[in-house]
Design a binder for these strands. Structure first.
Lengths: 223, 223
DNA sequence: CTTATACGTTAAGGAATTGTTAATCCTATC
DNA sequence: GATAGGATTAACAATTCCTTAACGTATAAG
C-alpha cells in the first residue's frame, strides 16, 4: 500500500468521519478540514496528493478553494475531486472549469468513493513530478513575492499574474489567448502589444532566458 | 486545438452520433465502434488517446473490452472511461477494477461528457510526455517540443504542425490534399512547392529517413 | 531519346509576428 | 485632486518564418 496523502474537506462532521475511516482502511494517509480556508492552511504544510472538496461549505466553498489550490505553485500537480449533492450540469461544468479532475455526486457510498480515489491516484502518481530542487526562481503566492537566487522581488500585479500563470506549468506553452483569458479575463479587450510589454518587463527583471517565445503560438516559462 | 484521438464505443447509433458530433465540435478526432470486438480492431490501428466504452453491448461488453485494452501493450497509457445506464455501486466498482479511469452514468448530456473528456485528457497528456525509449522521435504538444534522441527541438509553427499531423498516424500516407486542409486550412491557397519545402526542413532537422515520399500520393512518417 | 510529370533544392522577398521605447492613460492612496 | 506607480497604447524596429520562383533531379511512358 502506497499511503498517498489525502485531504478531505467537508463541513458535515458525520460524512468526514465515515469517509476518513474508509480511506484509512485502504491505507491512505488522511487529514480533514471543515471548510476551504482551513483546507488551504493544512494543504500548505501537508502537501496532499489528492484533495476531496465538498462544493457547499461555509466560509470558503469548494470552487473557490479549488481555484486557490490551482493557482498556488505550492500545489502543482495536486489532484482535486469535487464532491457535491447537486447533480446538475452547470455545477459539474463550473467544477471542471475551476480545474477539478473529477466530480463525485453525493450521497456517495464509501466503496464507490474508494474506487474513485484509487482510479484518480492511479492516474495521478505517474504525473506527480520530482520535487523542485535548486530552482533559480520561486514564487510565493501568499506574499506576492518572487525569489530569484535569494533576492526577493515585488512584482506589480499584472506581471506577477502573468509570471504565475506561465510558472504554473513550466515548459508548457500558453497561447496569447490562454494568457489573455487567464490574466486579463475574457471580457477585457487590450491591445496587441500589451502581453509583449509585460513579458519584456519580466525578462528585464528575471532574466530573458526564462521566457521563451514560440512564434505564432505563445510563450512558455523554463527554469 | 489539440485534436486528441477518441474512440467512442456504444451500440446505440443515436447516442454515438450525438456524442460524436459534440466531441468533434470541440476539435477532437473521433472514431466510433458499435461493440467491443470492433473497438479493439479499430483501436489497434487508430491508437486512440481516450476510449469511451459503453458497458452494455452485444458481442463483447465494455468490461471485457476494457480488460483487453489494458492487457494489450499496444495501448499502454490509454485512458478509458466507462459509460453505463446503471448507477449501481457494484457495477461502478467492477468497472474500476477492470482498469477504467472514469465512470460516467447515462443519460449523459453532451456538455457534461465534453467536460469530463477534457478533464481526463488534461490529466492524460501530462502522462504522455514521458518519452518512450524505443521511439527515436517524440512529440510533446503541450511544450511545443520535439525530442530526438534526448535533444529538444523547437520547430516553427508550420513545421511543427506538419510533423504533428504525419506523426499522428505513423506509417499512414497523407495526401497533399489532406496535408493542405489540415495544416493550412481549406480556404488558404498556397503554391505547389510549399509542402515540399517544409518537408525538406523536417528532413534536415530530424533525419530524412523518417519522411517517406510516395510519389503521386503524398508523404508518411515512420520511426 | 524525348517528353511529361512529380518532387527536391535553393535563395531571396515579403508577410506576419514579436520586441522596444516612450508617451499617455488609469487608479489607488494620501 | 495631486501624485505616483502601474497598465496600456501607438509607432516603429527587428526578427523570424513562410512562400515563391526558378531551376534541378528522378522516374515512367511513348
Amino acid at each position: 500500500m502506497s499511503g498517498e496523502k489525502i485531504l478531505l474537506v467537508d463541513d458535515e462532521q458525520d460524512i468526514v468521519e465515515l469517509l476518513e475511516y474508509n480511506l484509512r482502511k485502504e491505507g491512505y494517509q488522511v487529514r480533514t478540514a471543515l471548510n476551504g480556508q482551513e483546507a488551504l492552511k493544512i494543504a500548505s504544510s501537508y502537501k496532499p496528493d489528492l484533495v476531496i472538496l465538498d462544493v457547499m461549505m461555509p466560509v470558503m466553498d469548494g470552487m473557490q478553494t479549488c481555484e486557490a489550490l490551482r493557482k498556488s505553485p505550492n500545489h502543482n500537480g495536486v489532484i482535486i475531486a469535487m464532491l457535491t449533492a447537486r447533480a446538475e450540469d452547470y455545477s459539474q461544468i463550473a467544477g471542471f472549469d475551476a480545474g477539478a479532475d473529477d466530480y463525485i455526486t453525493k450521497p456517495v457510498k464509501p466503496k464507490v468513493l474508494v474506487s474513485r480515489v484509487k482510479a484518480l491516484l492511479r492516474r495521478g502518481t505517474s504525473v506527480i513530478g520530482i520535487p523542485d530542487e535548486n530552482l533559480s526562481i520561486v514564487i510565493n503566492r501568499d506574499k506576492y513575492l518572487v525569489i530569484k537566487e535569494g533576492n526577493e522581488f515585488n512584482l506589480p500585479k499584472k506581471e506577477f499574474e502573468l509570471l504565475n500563470l506561465l510558472y504554473s506549468q513550466p515548459g508548457s506553452v500558453f497561447t496569447r489567448q490562454n494568457i489573455l483569458s487567464s490574466v486579463w479575463g475574457d471580457e477585457v479587450v487590450v491591445g496587441d502589444r500589451t502581453i509583449d510589454v509585460h513579458i519584456r518587463k519580466l525578462r528585464e527583471k528575471l532574466g530573458s532566458e526564462h521566457f521563451v517565445t514560440i512564434k505564432g503560438v505563445g510563450y512558455k516559462f523554463q527554469h
